[in-house]
Design a binder for these strands. Structure first.
Lengths: 231, 231
DNA sequence: GTCTATAGTCGGATAGAC
DNA sequence: GTCTATCCGACTATAGAC
């Protein structure tokens, strides 16, 4: 697992580390736009202002670079939601987690998952491809962060409902709720055209956030109400 | 708009039409797996048991074939949800559409959008690519069916809420709800691994259907309840 | 209408100079 | 460690035979 350091402006990296970093950043863009097969090492090297041979030298080839990109994506996602996941996981360790707090963590998790920034577009492209046509890189993404996120989300729902719901039911429910958040990245062009937006900026993301979290809250409250009625 | 006929086993097609059909069907698979750039006309011709030159002859080249594939996808989707959209659109013309019927149509629409069949995987691949990195083919998909589906869904939500909600709000809400349904196609691999499913078959789709429609109902009922309380 | 043969382009990888 | 030059394979498109 040759982890590639994230950009860290203050730090003094050796020439080698700088070259690796530039290549990975360029590769995220190019792989995101074109996919593993269609992307060309020439394009990546050019954008990174590095020599073509550097890819073979540092990563062993195109595939190795692609794996390094997957590891980089995990780091980016963990930098974004890792601290919240740590906190929420700790909270769930408590003997009796408060339902309102479960809901709050769930909403926070969904909000951070929306991530419609322009800078996320290349990452989204890669992740979507790996979801629909997984390669060996999918395991890096899944074991690196996706599984943990899914597990935490399902556990929060389960704890909110008082552990009355089956685990597999909560897994499906969280997957669906996360789908609401991701719809604005995965089906970006449709919402842009239909809503008449030219981009998904801060203003638009605020609207999305309030809708997604409101939906999640309405679903969970409704489920709890129904379960009370049936008991 | 050179529309390509959908497979129709009983009908007698000329050799030319048969060749076109075989090429489009093969192209859906290959473009779905690899994308426009990475897909090769050799692979497509081979799977279709047609000569490579036939692609240039019938479609003018790789790009023309890709456009034909987009038109084919529109036909497949319309064959699936077109009749329901016709009916629901007619229903909305009524002077005072019943909210319960709005909800019923919305749930039906979401159910049909789940479509996790193995045969939908290539279509999903193409649609997802076009959403995140649209080419000229996106307009074929959007104007052919996506816009109409989105418009209808948002209108159903609006009618259910008694036209009290703003249109753009309903657009975002429907996009989010549709995201719940599509999450199981767009993020297929994650749910397979987490739920321990080997495929998304009939049994799994039944679970997904009940969760997605239940969520939609809970959201809409909750919204209506809240709007009553605030008035 | 259908197919073969080929022209012209571009890709990834690597040998070997510095 | 870094880079240039080059090899070899694979691609699309087309000319022209049948």
């Amino acid at each position: 697992m040759s982890s590639v350091p994230i950009a860290n402006p203050g730090e003094d990296l050796g020439r080698g580390a700088q070259a690796r970093l530039a290549l990975v950043n360029a590769a995220v863009e190019v792989f995101g736009e074109s996919g593993l097969e269609a992307a060309t090492t020439r394009e990546i090297a050019q954008r990174a202002r590095q020599n073509i041979a550097a890819i073979a030298y540092y990563f062993g080839g195109k595939e190795g670079l692609y794996r390094a990109v997957a590891e980089h994506i995990v780091q980016v996602i963990l930098a974004r939601i890792g601290p919240l996941m740590d906190e929420a996981e700790g909270f769930l360790e408590e003997t009796k987690p408060a339902p309102t707090q479960c809901l709050a963590y769930l909403k926070k998790l969904l909000e951070l998952s929306i991530a419609t920034n322009q800078s996320m577009v290349p990452l989204t492209g890669i992740i979507v491809r790996e979801q629909t046509h997984p390669t060996r890189a999918f395991s890096i993404l899944y074991q690196g962060c996706l599984e943990r996120l899914q597990r935490l989300g399902a556990s929060l729902i389960r704890a909110y409902l008082g552990n009355g719901a089956a685990e597999h039911e909560c897994i499906v429910r969280f997957h669906a709720m996360l789908g609401e958040a991701l719809a604005f990245r995965f089906a970006r062009e449709t919402i842009l055209r239909r809503a008449g937006w030219s981009e998904v900026g801060d203003k638009e993301e605020t609207i999305i956030r309030s809708v997604v979290t409101e939906h999640a809250e309405l679903v969970l409250r409704g489920l709890k109400r129904n379960s009370r009625r049936n008991s």
